[in-house]
Design a protein around this nucleic acid. Structure first.
Lengths: 332, 332
DNA sequence: GTGAAAGCGCTAACAT
DNA sequence: ATGTTAGCGCTTTCAC
């Protein structure tokens, strides 16, 4: 084990005071060129790396951002994280990752940990952290960016895709073309998203004095959507089936085929959250390209803005990102 | 913004010294019950949360672990991360996430950041961090667990699946049953894995005085495996095709069908890294269930052991995890 | 331009 | 059982 070398060691080696070393590592302008060199040599020679913890204490900031996501959601979150990290890197921020689990106890623990760790900010993805919990966070003066939900408040910004409008616009055309038998498949893992989709559909129907009813709920006793849908489609058929995730869409595809429903001729299918797997299915599944990566990148960019106390207005509190419909073979 | 309340504030509020407060928050046994209560009340009243940064400085440890993964690999890494985090939570460790990119510059920056942040340990997933870079890390006395590669050294442990043996055992049976026309599809994103698979296959062939030759390399000018394979299978056919990832397997499935090769009758297909998507494809793709989650959980458990200076022998330096073959419809 | 010293919030001897 | 004090490694005023 090599001795932890500190700023004092460098100072001694370079024959200057620690203040000067500090100035050098922080790129202060006032240091004379030759002493800067002297110090830099010493740093090099000793292999000195400033202790970020000590810096954090002295500066009252950690240059780290906490990121909170629901557990096991990496399939949908991967690109978001990449976006976050890429931008975080640019600004030299570290990311600590926290996951929430079903148990309600967990989340308050997470908040506790986050506060204790004195992160500079926290990014929350689409999570059930309720208002009160988020309030706890802001109460401790930490800036928050929420991804996936339209929330904003003092010290809270949000970046999201408007799924309600997305599906409203899309389903409306179907409805008005007489294809009014529209169904939405439940997604237990993403209740919040499904709620938005449902609202969008209800709006379409309501505007025509009609009521949206084909919400396909997967009964608890079925382990997977696939198993239930296999039964379901034996006695049901729709003009259009909407799912949130690719795996649900593939379940529809497979079960429909197995009971002899032809897609897209007899029934159309669209998956809201597009993925590469949609393109690999046969027939290829239509979907909406959601800007995952950008959700992350934009969020982190906003976070960095929030963190500069000067630019109190260089950013929007609510940022809506748009999607692109990608028609493939399951829609006509 | 609420004033940052510190241990001094609590001490004053409770009319004790800060040492006593420190004892209370650290669960020291020696504190008298009534003063403990007094302190706890003060803590509650003031909403005090110990500053983990200051604790880190004083204790010379951060209770955080760095995790390094190749960028954009969350599809394969998600469960590993969940495993890591779940165990990390138990031991109150935080996880900072670092991603490496293609550019060689990046990795040394990451090492720099990791060292500066004084994490207690680092977990590296299957990354190209070369020996030298890893040496830099150990040189700073930080324990390392490598996931996915069999490496071990002083202060380095590894947790992995032996893909070479996996494919050796599997392909051997084919070979010895006369199905010697075996092919392996390149995976640009996972060169290290493919190398292992290749070695396994080469071993099978070598043992029979034969040479493994059917390594299907995707030429650079093709954007995707799919595009190339579509051409490839027009003039090629194998007894068995092996891919690493689900998406590659689906590409084989789709292209084979498109040129009229029937799977599994004319050609069999196996995907090493199984995923739920393999079960959604039609025909369903056979694969090996790799214990992703356990790779993470076990790694973190080992890390915690390494972190206890006493138990220098409570763990293995190399831990091999096993896989389970899941036969589906693409193999006979 | 550089150094001395106080302070960031906490822990851990050492006293009492 | 509790208080006092010296660090942990760094930044930043304030002198010089």
């Amino acid at each position: 084990m090599m001795k932890r070398i500190t700023i004092y060691d460098v100072a001694k080696e370079a024959n200057v005071s620690l203040a000067t070393v500090s100035r050098v590592i922080n790129g202060s302008e006032v240091v004379r060129e030759d002493t800067r060199l002297k110090v830099q040599e010493a740093i090099e020679k000793l292999g000195y790396k400033p202790n970020a913890i000590a810096q954090g204490l002295a500066l009252q900031k950690t240059t780290t951002i906490a990121f909170v996501i629901p557990e096991a959601s990496f399939f949908y979150t991967g690109q978001i994280i990449n976006g976050l990290i890429d931008v975080a890197k640019i600004y030299n921020y570290n990311m600590v990752l926290h996951t929430t689990t079903e148990g309600i106890l967990a989340t308050s623990d997470i908040i506790e940990t986050i506060i204790k760790s004195r992160v500079d900010g926290v990014v929350i993805f689409n999570d059930k952290l309720d208002k009160e919990e988020i309030a706890t966070l802001t109460n401790y003066d930490v800036p928050i960016v929420v991804i996936g939900n339209r929330i904003s408040d003092n010290n809270i910004c949000s970046v999201y895709v408007d799924y309600e409008t997305l599906i409203y616009d899309y389903a409306k055309r179907y409805y008005e073309n007489g294809k009014t038998n529209i169904a939405l498949v439940e997604d237990r893992k993403n209740p919040a998203m499904i709620e938005q989709l449902r609202h969008g559909l209800e709006k379409v129907f309501k505007e025509h004095g009609d009521t949206f009813e084909n919400y396909i709920k997967i009964p608890k006793e079925y382990r997977s959507s696939y198993e239930y849908l296999k039964e379901y489609f034996k006695t049901n058929k729709h003009d259009l089936v909407i799912t949130y995730r690719d795996s649900q869409a593939m379940a529809v595809l497979n079960t429909a085929r197995e009971v002899g429903i032809s897609i897209p001729d007899e029934m159309e299918l669209v998956c809201v959250l597009d993925s590469k797997y949609n393109a690999m299915a046969r027939p290829q599944i239509s979907g909406f390209k959601i800007p995952d990566y950008d959700l992350g990148a934009v969020s982190m960019r906003i976070m960095t803005k929030m963190l500069q106390d000067d630019a109190k207005d260089g950013y929007n509190k609510e940022t809506e990102l748009s999607y692109i419909f990608t028609p493939r073979e399951t829609t006509k």
